[in-house]
Design a protein around this nucleic acid. Structure first.
Lengths: 130, 130
DNA sequence: AAAACTGTTCTATAAGATCTAGATCAAAAG
DNA sequence: CTTTTGATCTAGATCTTATAGAACAGTTTT
């Protein structure tokens, strides 16, 4: 799985990593049951510190997206392992974004189309091996 | 317009303020052309520092949502004043959220329903004076 | 005209978040 | 047994967030 880091971004490194891993799962470039690289090798690949990758993994674990097995590795969780709480959390993340979309003048339909096209963007890249 | 602050939230104060102002505009509790309270009176109402409100206002100005007239006040902008760049920015904000939704097992339809219900939540509160 | 209010700008301080660095540990994997 | 694993600890640098107070110059109100 290819991760691209932007050191000059205002988005923290550990969040960039988390987000791209999530996108990688959504695109099925990596699947439930599979392991992520060790924090050390991943950090070396990205040219950043081990602790930063570790923070990213724990961030993903807190979201319930991966399961960290001490002394072993990080494994992608299955979708069915999610509770109602994570959906409530997502709802709170959508709210300000949708409010802003309405404020900048997007119509109901334009927002729906944006979401649909973005979902398609993920699903269309499912078959790609890389 | 009523703003509720959560000092213990992990979301910065200035962002909480920005987001709730945006939601207030989406709900039409405040409308384009109208003024926001002065940074001093707003800060006093919320029991926080003037500079924090000031930062929030500049954050909203950067998004193009309000226009700050020096020595005068902050005025809600009209939707037609938005450019293509702000739409591109929104798209990048939607991406990680939609990816996460797919990863936690939400279907295409469930995401659409979540978005629709949230849009309705805003539009249904339009008529309320408060 | 005078007073009150406006956003802007400056210095300062404190606390927290982010990132890097290096070392050690005990368990798992080879 | 050797290597690798995540966990944990101290440490330091930098940036962000939030507060505080003061001063300035233009606007609005009285």
């Amino acid at each position: 799985m290819i991760i691209r880091i932007e050191p000059e971004s205002e988005v923290p490194l550990y969040l960039q990593i988390s987000n791209q891993i999530i996108e990688g799962i959504a695109r099925e470039h990596i699947q439930p049951g599979q392991s992520l690289p060790s924090v050390r090798t991943f950090a070396a690949d990205l040219g950043i510190n081990m602790h930063t990758v570790n923070k990213s993994y724990h961030h993903l674990e807190q979201k319930g997206i991966i399961r960290i097995v001490p002394k072993s590795g990080a494994i992608i969780s299955s979708p069915q392992d999610f509770n109602e709480a994570s959906l409530e959390r997502l709802k709170n993340d959508y709210r300000p974004l949708i409010a802003e979309s309405l404020v900048v003048g997007m119509s109901n339909q334009q927002i729906q189309e944006l979401v649909t096209s973005m979902i398609e963007e993920f699903k269309s890249s499912k078959e790609e091996t890389q």
